[in-house]
Design a protein around this nucleic acid. Sequence first.
DNA 1: GTGGTCTAGACCACC
DNA 2: GTGGTCTAGACCACT
Lengths: 104, 104, 104, 104
Amino acid sequence: MLDLHLDLDRAAGRLGVQLAARLRDAIRSGRLVPAARLPSTRALAQDLGVSRGVVVTAYEQLAAEGFLVSRPGDGTRVARLPAVPAPAGRARPEARGTLDTLPE
Amino acid sequence: MLDLHLDLDRAAGRLGVQLAARLRDAIRSGRLVPAARLPSTRALAQDLGVSRGVVVTAYEQLAAEGFLVSRPGDGTRVARLPAVPAPAGRARPEARGTLDTLPE
Amino acid sequence: MLDLHLDLDRAAGRLGVQLAARLRDAIRSGRLVPAARLPSTRALAQDLGVSRGVVVTAYEQLAAEGFLVSRPGDGTRVARLPAVPAPAGRARPEARGTLDTLPE
Amino acid sequence: MLDLHLDLDRAAGRLGVQLAARLRDAIRSGRLVPAARLPSTRALAQDLGVSRGVVVTAYEQLAAEGFLVSRPGDGTRVARLPAVPAPAGRARPEARGTLDTLPE
DNA sequence: GTGGTCTAGACCACC
DNA sequence: GTGGTCTAGACCACT
């Protein structure tokens, strides 16, 4: 029985991304071992108190990254070779700004 | 002259919240000292390349939290007693969840 | 006035992916020029007869690929430098199979 | 002995539709000649690593289109007159859309 | 039952 | 008004 501490900060939004991050960490750290079966999207959604779409999004993202493998009708499992260093990612546009303040 | 690194991630949205978080951190860490005067909302907005409403929102929130004090004619300043070691009193809705998995 | 021929095959599913593909082609081919403003997600959804989520998904994907830039409150536009060769992509698991048949 | 390259993309789902498409192409292109006997649903399912229902669905669809003929005790064979040059008669719901954009 | 997808509606933040 | 996000419900395909 693994307690994955899947707490989500609802106020922060992007629940799917948060959940994916939690699960990714669990896999990377080994708390979630290869071939382990994950809860169904419906079950986890209910457990977390979020809509199923949130869980589907998270599983989808992790599947695209190679951490999970999900097949319709069969459930979702941790991939056998969760390798993958990290999907690089394009640099996000940022609004740079500097604040010059002199203490009174 | 302090460089506060107030970079905002435009793509992430919630700019007001982001900005407030950055300023809060600056105050907590001491990079922004008590009584220090903050830039006007208009100036900071222009510096960051965001609309003034974003900055107004951030200042309002930090004022409500006790970090900032704004008085007409005196602009906005860091409060002398930034109080609130950690806003733990504020309810933070969370979705808790446990994951029971047995690797088959 | 550009007719982008954004026809979608509803029976094929993955409407968001289809739409993204159509728009990507339009950008790559130059039919959609840099800085051109795209219709709002709501407007295009209604025009195509799909739910807004489908359009949001497509815009989101193209934004992640660097083809589009969307900012809340402002609309969505074609990026200035739509470069990007193609996001490689991990090899998909396949079910291989051979069929040996002798014509009677 | 014909290698039909019946590779299916499991991640894409709709395996039945994919398989039917592959077989239809094989018939149209002549790689699968009239009166040729197809493998049993069980055999092909095992060969492809999918459930039998997938193959049954594919055979059924092709039979309905006139490409295959299945008779009890005689298995499934390619029809002598694969007729139907193109299933244009079947309604194919499409979402048409035009995009009018002027590059500002 | 399980994942995949789409819909319709809603709320928020930003401009 | 616009994009971003979440919800709730539904249908389909596969096992």
